[in-house]
Structure formats: structure tokens, C-alpha cells
Nucleic acid binder design. Structure first.
Lengths: 155, 155
DNA sequence: ACGGCTCTTGACGTTGACGTCAACGTAAAG
DNA sequence: CTTTACGTTGACGTCAACGTCAAGAGCCGT
């Protein structure tokens, strides 16, 4: 994986983005690689930031929002008011994420439902068509959909 | 909540979007309200579609992707090839959602971690400032799991 | 018939997140 | 030293997902 520090091409390759994307992220203050002359040098911390950014993207956050989140991670302790503000921000992010997780769980359950009906219809068709049973086409295991409803929430 | 069928203004209001958004969704085939003359009439099924669409948006899906997903919900049984294709699509969606869920869980764990440190720092500050302990301000509970301190990327 | 309201269809503007291209520096290889 | 690959900064293009007018149709109560 080459060796630190990395070039822009290396990190881009490693993270599956283009160098243009990386530069854009730098413009937006999401990463701030060292500069040797004009070239960018990416250190491990830059890679950590990048992976946080990309995870944020996978979650559908806007870059601006992602910036605020990752900035929270390496914020200095600061004074009490700052800390209280930060905790408040964290709680908001948490609420957001928990809503998303609930959305995901519900969607997953519905997909399970649709798939079950599909497989039933498919079974009927193949049976009518005189096909041998054939293994389940795909090794899906019926997962116990909801592990303990540890967190019944209803917002 | 008025009475079915609803006008575009009513559904827009109910779902917290603008009528422009609703019309755009219709253009994109996400909803197809009945027409009485030139006016749109939204029936319960349109509202269901809309809520599915908005949930998809909360999850950060693109409208095109959302359309394919919601279309899966009320697809006709069709023939075997169709069904197999549909099941495959569902499995892909599921994999995607499960990735997102993992991302969310990890982010939540990290947020817990940051918040814990915040509260510790805050406690130190207020103690130094001679404040009473004060109750935990917010009834959060510890959610297990320490993510590895390393880069943890999976692309 | 008139003003006022809601709804309609364009058409163009905007914002975020890049892609693309041009023109140029720089560092290692032959 | 020249080539070649990689790097840099603009500047402009693009695409999705709407926002924002503009201009009109349809109906309502007075």
C-alpha cells in the first residue's frame, strides 16, 4: 500500500475516488494534507479523516455536515460552554442516525416480505412448470429479523 | 387531515414538502395521482408511495434508485425470469442497507466515545469550578464495542 | 361579471458535488 | 537534457433535485 506519506494519486486509488474529489474535499476543509512545496502529502490522520468522510457520504450526509461531524472528533476540550454545545450537537447527530437506522430496519423488513412473496410465487411457477425443487437459488438464511427489541422507539 | 382524495397542496403540507417537489416526483414516475381534468387527485396509495419515497430520501438514495425500489413493492408476479431478477435486486438493496446499518452503528459508537470524553472533561472543569456534580444531564446508555483505533476502511 | 383563490404547465435559476479540460510546474528515468 | 509521468491551479461543464417566476385555466362567492 505504498508508504506514508502518500501522494494524492495513492490515496485516491486506495479510497476509490478521483484526485479531483480529494482536491474538492480539501477545498471544503475536509482534509488538509501537508504541503511539500506545491505537492500534497497525506499522512495517516488524513486517511482517517478521509475514511470518516466517505462513511459520512455512504450515509448520505452533505459534505458540510460531514465536516462538522469529523471536526467534532478532534476538537480540543475548550471551555464548558463549548463542551456543552458539542455534546448537544452529538445528541442531534445521534438522534438523526437512530432515525436512519429505524428507517433501514423497516425497509429491510419490508424487503424480506417482498422477497418471501417472490419466492413463493417462484415456487408455484417452477412447480407448475414441472421443475425439480432446486436448491434455494441463493443461500439466504432467514435471519431473526429483529434482535431483542432492545430499543423500541416510536418517533 | 382533510379527506381522500387529497389535493396537491394537502399532501405537500402533510408530508412537509412543496408542491413543486410533488410535481417533480410525478415527472420522475415516483407517484402517479389520478387526474380529474387537469387537477391531481391523490389517493391513499399515492400517499403510501410518497412516504416510501421520503423514507428513501432520508436514507440518502437517489430518486432514480428510489423509483426502482418502490416499483418493486407493487410489481406483478410476472414470469420466473422477472421474479429471479427482482429477488436479485432485493438482495442488492439489502446488502446496501446492511452496509449502511453497519456504518451507522460504528458512527454511533464513536459518537458515544466522543461524548463520554466530553462529559469527563466537563466534569473536570465544573469540579475545578466548584460546581455540584449534577445528574448525568441526559439518560444515555453505553452501547458496547470499541472500534479498532486503526484506519478501518472497507472499500 | 369580478376579484380571489387554488391549481396548472412551462421555462429558467440555483446549489452541491463533482467531471473535464487547459496550461503549466516538477521530479525521476533513460 | 529531454522525455515522461505525475502534480498543480483555475475555469468551465454537468447532473440531480429542486426553487422561482410567469402566464394562464377553473371554480367560488358576491
Amino acid at each position: 500500500m505504498a508508504t506514508p506519506p502518500w501522494s494524492i494519486a495513492e490515496v485516491a486509488e486506495d479510497f476509490g475516488v478521483t484526485h479531483r474529489t480529494v482536491r474538492y474535499y480539501e477545498d471544503q476543509g475536509l482534509v488538509s494534507p501537508e504541503r511539500r512545496g506545491t505537492q500534497r502529502l497525506f499522512h495517516p490522520r488524513d486517511r482517517v479523516r478521509l475514511s470518516l468522510v466517505l462513511r459520512g457520504k455512504r450515509l448520505g450526509f452533505a459534505l458540510e455536515e460531514i465536516r462538522r461531524i469529523v471536526d467534532m472528533y478532534d476538537e480540543q476540550p475548550g471551555e464548558a460552554g463549548q463542551l456543552r454545545y458539542l455534546i448537544d450537537q452529538i445528541d442531534q447527530r445521534r438522534a438523526d442516525l437512530e432515525q436512519r437506522r429505524a428507517d433501514i430496519d423497516q425497509t429491510l423488513a419490508e424487503l424480506d416480505d417482498v422477497e418471501t412473496r417472490c419466492r413463493r410465487d417462484l415456487a408455484v411457477l417452477t412447480e407448475a412448470g414441472d421443475q425439480p425443487p432446486a436448491t434455494l437459488a441463493n443461500g439466504r438464511r432467514r435471519r431473526g429479523r429483529r434482535p431483542p427489541p432492545e430499543e423500541t422507539q416510536g418517533a
